[in-house]
Design a protein around this nucleic acid. Structure first.
Length: 297
DNA sequence: TCTAGAAGCCGGAGGTGTGT
DNA sequence: ACACACCTCCGGCTTCTAGA
């Protein structure tokens, strides 16, 4: 058994196809088929069900897949540790963050990180907090920023802090003339909000449930830019952190005011798999995120 | 009939042993 | 120490087989 066979098996299991996996691995299908057979012979167990329309993982295969991923992660961390020991942080790093943080955090964070660690091949993904969590657990991300709440016990987290949430609207609209606004008043306003799978929406619904003040939904839009465009056009108001508004308020026509009673805030965390061996590239990104967040304080 | 995996065969690369 | 022969391993190509 070797890492090449284990990696081949993990890619086959992920793709569900020998042909697709062979293409991804840069091997011919027969070569890949032979690698898998050798692994199965070594382990004395069938890892895949073969059908005329692809392959599926057996129960033994699922168990092997989990441990194979852990071994591959350790091998990657070992390579990167040796490189770091020689003064070079290198390797691959898949990092995810929610769009409402990505709009203001990605630029400075990634450019600074890339300048300091040019040998690290970065993959940056923006997605909903729940999707990011799933991708972390599926080994598709090494590190991600998530919104606090319903975090899996399989993840380790580091709190990043709290962001006050503002009611956002056109400067000339009546509610925006106030210095602040109560949650009760906000709940009565027509709101342009993301769908229920979105962490921010889930958070607002929790506030609404606790306060017994159901939200008045005008339009549901997952895209931040669409939300703000609709707010500019007077279809309603939205709720976002101040930094998100600042990053997207190109024409300065939108303003934000604090929401009180209760004051709305969003907490975020940096998360990674509890069983993961963090590579030097991942540790460097963790520090870079903490530095960047600290610079906003 | 089409698609995808398996098997057989071949060639290249690298390792090992032996002779000079 | 070097050159050569042989062996093993790996990957590609072609063909066959099985399932949808």
């Amino acid at each position: 058994m070797d890492l090449k066979q284990l990696n081949a098996f993990v890619v086959v299991a992920d793709t569900g196809s020998m042909v697709a996996a062979a293409s991804q691995l840069g091997l011919s299908q027969p070569s890949l088929s032979r690698l898998i057979r050798q692994l199965e012979a070594d382990l004395g167990s069938r890892l895949l069900h073969r059908t005329g329309r692809g392959v599926s993982v057996t129960d033994s295969g699922r168990m092997v897949m989990e441990q194979a991923r852990a071994l591959l992660d350790q091998a990657t961390a070992l390579r990167q540790s040796v490189a770091a020991h020689q003064g070079q942080v290198s390797g691959q790093l898949a990092f995810g963050l929610p769009p409402s943080m990505g709009v203001y955090l990605s630029g400075p964070l990634i450019s600074d990180y890339h300048r300091r660690y040019p040998l690290v091949h970065l993959q940056i993904g923006e997605a909903l907090s729940g999707d990011l969590q799933e991708r972390l657990l599926a080994h598709k991300l090494d590190l991600a920023i998530l919104y606090d709440g319903a975090i899996s016990a399989s993840l380790s987290v580091l709190p990043l802090g709290r962001e006050p949430l503002l009611l956002i609207g056109p400067a000339d609209q009546a509610p925006m003339q106030q210095r602040d606004i109560t949650f009760e008043q906000v709940a009565r306003l027509p709101l342009v909000l993301p769908g229920v799978r979105h962490g921010l929406r889930a958070l607002l619904e929790q506030y609404a449930f606790r306060e017994s003040r159901p939200l008045t939904l005008a339009v549901e839009a997952d895209s931040l830019r669409v939300q703000l465009d609709l707010v500019r056009r007077g279809l309603g108001f939205t709720i976002l952190p101040a930094r998100t508004l600042k990053a997207l308020n190109d024409d300065g026509r939108l303003v934000g005011i604090p929401v009180l009673s209760p004051s709305l805030e969003r907490r975020s965390v940096l998360a990674w798999r509890r069983d993961a061996v963090l590579s030097p590239a991942t540790l460097a990104m963790r520090d870079a995120v903490l530095d960047q967040i600290a610079s906003y304080a």
